[in-house]
Design a protein around this nucleic acid. Sequence first.
DNA 1: AATAAAACGTACCGATCGGTATGAAAAGGA
DNA 2: TCCTTTTCATACCGATCGGTACGTTTTATT
Lengths: 193, 193
Amino acid sequence: MVRLREFDENEALDAAMRLFWEKGYEATSLTDLTTRMGIQKPSLYSAFGDKKRLFEAALRRYTQHHAARVRALLQSRDSVKQAFRLLFESVAAPRDDGGTERGCFCINTMVELAPHDPAFEVLTREHQMYLTALFRETIERGVRSGELRSDTDAQSVAETLVVSLIGLTVLMKSRPDRTFVDRSVRVVLGLLA
Amino acid sequence: MVRLREFDENEALDAAMRLFWEKGYEATSLTDLTTRMGIQKPSLYSAFGDKKRLFEAALRRYTQHHAARVRALLQSRDSVKQAFRLLFESVAAPRDDGGTERGCFCINTMVELAPHDPAFEVLTREHQMYLTALFRETIERGVRSGELRSDTDAQSVAETLVVSLIGLTVLMKSRPDRTFVDRSVRVVLGLLA
DNA sequence: AATAAAACGTACCGATCGGTATGAAAAGGA
DNA sequence: TCCTTTTCATACCGATCGGTACGTTTTATT
């Protein structure tokens, strides 16, 4: 029995993720979605449920990929300071391109949906907590290696770096001066000593 | 000649501001607006133009009030450290209320509209620059009074505090633990020394 | 009191919203 | 090959979207 899917669910979800990431939940219509996903509405509904459920699936996909990327980036350098500098500069990069400027999907969702939907409040909080754990572990590695001062409060510094990274990501959306961004990154990374 | 307005433009704009602040641009409908503003659609259009123009007027009103509030708060204490602590704690406050949790209208707009609308990119950037100037002047006051170290880089620290305050405001939307918030505020304010 | 100008309430506009009913097409099991 | 089951495409649903035409009511001026 059965007729099998003619589209790849992962590819379709990926397309939905990029669209929600770029435009947000409310500003993205089902027409936008079906066009970019390359499927029709009934296929979308049978595979992913309604718009909110599709959005949630897209966000979960994003947070998993994002967490993996941050983890890989932090582990890509022996120097903890270098690793964090790499991470912050990947956010502070100019992006004066023609490409799409999207920031962080999870942060966008924190602003648009978390205050009005407990499910997204939890989902976004858990991602920030996970990033904080990654940061703390990396800082602890730096303490063990002797790169960072032995009296470093890894947890507190990790939390502060997460807050700063969120702030920097949001601020970038207003395209501030490079000097502004560079100086604040320098000060923030100065917390690692 | 002429028949005069039966509603107060400032009151109506104030109601629109609170609504956009709470729900964002896309999620706020004209029906929501006319209901809360207490006027009909033709009155809204003749007084404020279309939805985007009304939103822009509401945001300008917000940034003016917000800037005045921050300025007053920073000037309310002789101690610069105390003043910034007051400001950051007003953002980090629990708000475990039944009231509306809204965060900062300007930050919400940075996330929702600035990346897709140059007018709001400029408007939100200018507000952040103004806040940065307020912070810098306050820090310089602390340096002059001897409360802060004389080698303090007022501009860089001001920029970093703005970034941190944005990050904290956004993070609050996911209702993180008090301990997380308190520790990161403590570390950030540690930049004032 | 007559008039002209502006704001009011109502009722409506086409377009689009998120979501679905329906029937044809496709494919594994018998 | 026939049947059953799922997916596909089309066409459609009521509701709501942002925005406006229009006729009435109000008011300052003459």
